[in-house]
Design a protein around this nucleic acid. Structure first.
Lengths: 199, 199
DNA sequence: ACTGTCATACCGACCGGTAGGTAGGTGGCC
DNA sequence: GGCCACCTACCTACCGGTCGGTATGACAGT
């Protein structure tokens, strides 16, 4: 039942298969049997690593959240200016949404499906969302101090606004198939920031 | 098997119960048994009106889409100016997202869950989304001609952007519970329009 | 070096429950 | 009498989860 992963190949296969299935079909529709088949592993093995489907969900959510955070951390290490850091994050998002291996956001997928039925999973989604939104909000508040001191807009809520644009765009992507619209949306958001902070 | 509704009480109860369950738990997790129990009707009766769960989904999606369209139509009949019409829609959205009987968007919920597994349902979601986005886009394009003729922004894509903000905000609402953040997001969007079209 | 012990990793048959869906009615109304 | 709305009873498949078992390998005692 040890779920801490130090390159355990079976566990990794299980997690990867589960992530893929849940990203495309959602948490409920992804069955444990299906995940095991995709991972080339039996059900007994699954329950050796996870005590329930919900626990798999937690681990998956945590892993996805950490990876995403890492990604954005990597993108803007070394950038001191908060506004530049935000622009860098937007640019990173624009680039990654156009790559074909962009399968969507597990946190958004889960949030939609299980918020009423699995409070613990919802809580993890909420924390991930809040972490991202408040992080961006902090940078944007600091940037306001630097570049738009007297202006009347609420910088802190821009983080959640940005997150909404991302999640909404990804939702629309599911019916459209392509990520082109998402790139346009992110550009609109960037343009909004420019109008607030000056160019 | 006639699904056309001219005030059929049983059918209406079935549809209402299904909509409520699917809005809160999603399409997959909402069971036919559960819907029938909530509607106070037996399963035989359900299959008298719908030949499958997927057909229920179609009818539900159609009904929800039409209602939503009606709602926004009503909100801005008589307003000739396209930009004012858009602002009116935004205001309507801000108001309705703060009311407690705001349960979310069925189309967004479905789009997330079934886009990979039920192509016909996905198509309906896509059409609803596109209808809304291009409708708003048309008004915003017309408004650009009137108020921001020379400007360089892409007015047509603002419709999809608006829709993304709405859908993303609703997704975040599911983890937060309250619609306050959504109102803030819509105000940010309105502010963006003001920056593009002048005040 | 050999052997017994024990934990870990993994297997696959099996369980009860519930899912979507079907069949065959019953009763009321034109 | 026949149609329509609706009900009861039932079917099969599959769901999440359990359980008894096996293969492997590290380690200890002799």
């Amino acid at each position: 039942m040890s779920t801490t992963n130090t390159e355990n190949p079976t566990l990794t296969k299980l997690l990867d298969a589960a992530e893929e299935q849940m990203l495309s079909c959602g948490y409920v529709a992804a069955s444990i049997d299906g995940i095991c088949t995709a991972a080339g592993v039996t059900k007994g093995s699954f329950f050796h690593y996870f005590k329930s489907k919900e626990e798999l969900g937690k681990v998956l959510l945590e892993r996805f959240g950490n990876r995403q955070q890492e990604r954005f951390m990597d993108a803007c290490t070394g950038i001191a200016d908060p506004l530049e850091r935000v622009y860098k994050v937007i640019e990173t998002a624009i680039q990654s949404c156009q790559s074909p291996d962009m399968k969507g956001c597990l946190i958004g997928t889960f949030a939609q499906e299980i918020s009423e039925t699995h409070p613990e999973l919802r809580e993890i989604c909420k924390c991930s969302f809040e972490g991202f939104a408040t992080g961006m909000g902090a940078d944007l508040t600091a940037a306001k101090e630097l570049y738009a001191k007297g202006a009347s807009f609420d910088a802190a809520s821009l983080g959640a606004y940005f997150l909404s644009v991302i999640q909404g765009s990804m939702l629309l992507m599911r019916t459209n198939g392509d990520g082109e619209a998402m790139a346009l949306n992110l550009e609109h958001f960037r343009e909004y920031l420019r109008s607030l902070y000056g160019r």
